[in-house]
Amino acid sequence: MWLENGLSWMKDTMTQAVIEAKGLNLVFQTADGPVHALKDVNLTINPGEFVSFIGPSGCGKTTFLRAIAALEHPTSGTLTVNGMTPDEARRKRAYGYVFQAAGLYPWRTIAGNIRLPLEIMGFSKAEMDQRVERVLDLVELSGFGKKFPWQLSGGMQQRASIARALAFDADILLMDEPFGALDEIVRDRLNEETLKLWARTGKTIGFVTHSIPEAVYLSTKIVVMSPRPGRITDIIESPLPKERPLEIRDSREFIEIAHRVREGLRAGHLDE
């Protein structure tokens, strides 16, 4: 009996959407009147997907990611994360969040920074040490645990902040323009590593970006958004294989998807 229940529960969670938005609206009240940051957003993200949100500033891509993380609260519509409200999902440690700036505490070592969420969540000392080692290895920063943030390059700092988001084993990784402040060469490398990380961990990733090549290279699903009011104009399921060397960016398929994304962005712009 309990086995059957367990099995059916497992089935549910396997097929259940990780993130589901239905008719989502979010309005900010500002001094200049209400700003419609998200209008009628419908989106389903399934387990293990790599979803990019792309669009010009003000299109609501970051707001949507923040709503998933319960940092903003929708005005109307429903938004569920693992079948729960975003607030509940946070309490269940459903997601790790990576911001545009690494935001490492300068007074803590790299290991100390990664330990931060673990300390707050009350892990044991031994467990913490073991987890820190593991995630440092995941982002290829083994041996840098004792360094202070200023001793690391910008790219390495951002990798450390990704390790910090991974430390408590959330199923979902939310990344808000994590490589936006880095130069192209570092960015290429981190994109490759992000894909490797995604393949190794099987996490569901929500990724906000300004860059068309970045979105196409990384994603299994690309959500194209446009501003005023922030809304989704196109959702593209990527036909690219899971295994993606950097050279794939010169392939015909890649260029075609990039073209479609660009079209979607332009269409959103013409509406104005």
């Binding site: 940092l71 935001g103 505490y105 007074w107 969540m121």
Partner: peptide, 24 residues
């Protein structure tokens, strides 16, 4: 951003003070 980060960990007032505000 730093306050938001702690929020995503579900940190309360006390943890925010001890881990972030005080050392900062």
């Amino acid at each position: 951003m730093q306050l938001d980060l702690l929020k995503t960990y579900g940190a309360g007032q006390g943890a925010t003070f001890l881990k972030l505000r005080l050392p900062a």
